[in-house]
């Protein structure tokens, strides 16, 4: 499963990271060397193996249905690069 420059461009797009065209070749090479190396897992027959779902053997604890927070508008917006009247502000989104 070799990664070409178009694939790098595509995954960079999915990951929302701008990548310059002149970086593509280098990145493709790097990603390929890592992917080639992890390929060795293919040696193992895992057809009868259940995937690990959690590193901890316990059942999931649940929260009661209680409102435990009041108004945190300031706390959640104070670090925002742009905000106004308690809203986060972003470049216009077109639907």
């Amino acid at each position: 499963m070799s990664v070409d420059q178009n694939t790098v461009r595509h995954i960079a797009r999915l990951a929302r990271i701008a990548v310059r065209d002149d970086e593509l070749e280098h990145l493709a090479k790097e990603l390929n060397s890592i992917l080639d190396w992890v390929e060795q897992l293919g040696e193992l027959d895992t057809s009868d193996v259940e995937p690990m779902t959690s590193a901890v053997e316990t059942t999931m604890k649940m929260r009661e249905d209680e409102v435990t927070f009041g108004n945190l508008q300031d706390e959640v917006t104070r670090n925002a690069p742009a905000s106004e009247d308690g809203f986060y502000v972003v470049p216009k989104v077109v639907e």
Binding site: N71, Q73, V76
Partner: peptide, 12 residues
């Protein structure tokens, strides 16, 4: 509710 007043640290 007023904008971003029902938002916990997790929700943000």
């Amino acid at each position: 509710a007023e904008q971003n007043t029902h938002v916990s640290l997790v929700d943000a």
